[in-house]
Design a protein around this nucleic acid. Sequence first.
DNA 1: CAAAATATTTAAGCTTACTTAAAAATATTT
DNA 2: AAATATTTTTAAGTAAGCTTAAATATTTTG
Lengths: 219, 219
Amino acid sequence: MSVAIENFVKAIYKNGKRDNNDTKPGNIAKELGISNAAATDMAKKLAVKDLLHYQKYQKLKLTEKGTKMALTVVRKHRLWESLLFKLFDMSLHDIHREAELLEHQTSDLLANKISEYLGNPKFDPHGDPIPNADGEITTTDTSITLSQTSEGKTYIISRLMSDDKEFFDFCAQHGLKYGNTVLVSKQFTKNKMTQISINNNTILLNEDFTSIIYVNETN
Amino acid sequence: MSVAIENFVKAIYKNGKRDNNDTKPGNIAKELGISNAAATDMAKKLAVKDLLHYQKYQKLKLTEKGTKMALTVVRKHRLWESLLFKLFDMSLHDIHREAELLEHQTSDLLANKISEYLGNPKFDPHGDPIPNADGEITTTDTSITLSQTSEGKTYIISRLMSDDKEFFDFCAQHGLKYGNTVLVSKQFTKNKMTQISINNNTILLNEDFTSIIYVNETN
DNA sequence: CAAAATATTTAAGCTTACTTAAAAATATTT
DNA sequence: AAATATTTTTAAGTAAGCTTAAATATTTTG
């Protein structure tokens, strides 16, 4: 299967996981940077290949086969991120960009070798779960977004769900990374902002960021 | 530049390095597994891009720009081979196959990170030289093929110039690998065969193999 | 050196993955 | 609920990278 198909299926999978859950062609097109027409076209072709269910004007829904393909690509992406993160001194954003290309040129054999080398990790450096060789995610995610946290409690960062360079630069600058501890000092509910303490610094985050930073309560 | 272009330029470079040095479209086509017509077509397009000189019915010759592109791809290929060889337990042939794909999806930044991680090696696991970041090969190769060696002398294997699985399987089985020592016990000049001793075993090799195994005399 | 064999080029055509523009359907707003 | 805005779809077209078939050169051979 081509890179275009793998990316298309992956985009549906990722959009389906999000809150909004909008997997209509237009949204996928936006995600991939292609025209709506191209997305509709591709959707029809992939329906024939039994990768997704297509009904005019409706959301695109992956078949089992399509879901498996998406998860296989996601697995390779996250394994590459994990490997590059371990071996090289590179920013999470740069690592993401490389993985975005390498994921399509990686045999199952190589993916398994990478996984084995890393000790079959369950999470990548963003905190995202790595599907196993059968395309299954076996871990259960109990984390919540920073925007949903309670004042006065401390949390451990579990995921940074983004591929935006500015966001990662910001995170790197302030120590916001997988595994680090933050104290939620104030929730500005009305203004949708969250004030946190990390490394003795106070940071005020708006919803753009607090909705993509996932955490788990400390116990 | 596309994968097709990178592979085309690389094929010319590699064919140009070989003894026969035949870089006419037909030979490149054979190397790449495409039709002669496709190779001629591509040659014309790449001439416009100043990657090679094209004259009807003549050999294709890379320009400086084309050579640099080829060497950049070769660098990435050999760095990937070196990395995969170091990290994973995989056959040289499998490693070659993965590198063949990864080489086209690797930024200069990542290539440099790999090189740095490996201690800026000058040779890959086949013994082939790794061009530096500027696309230059600074090492001088004084090695000769097994077919050119003298009876009774011992040599150290310096390169295994192939990407054929059967060849690598054979090499792996008999301890023919980069750095190992062999004694040339007999040259059957007329029949173009060479008898060697390695690990207390005697092997008779024909020219198919002795012309792609490179060695250096021990001193 | 002419004839036969081989290689290269030209021409026409195909598939994939896009594009833009216009038509048709759905969603949103008042 | 009608009018407006937005999306989706259809239609037509493009570029890259191939193919096969036929025409044209070049190379080899008798």
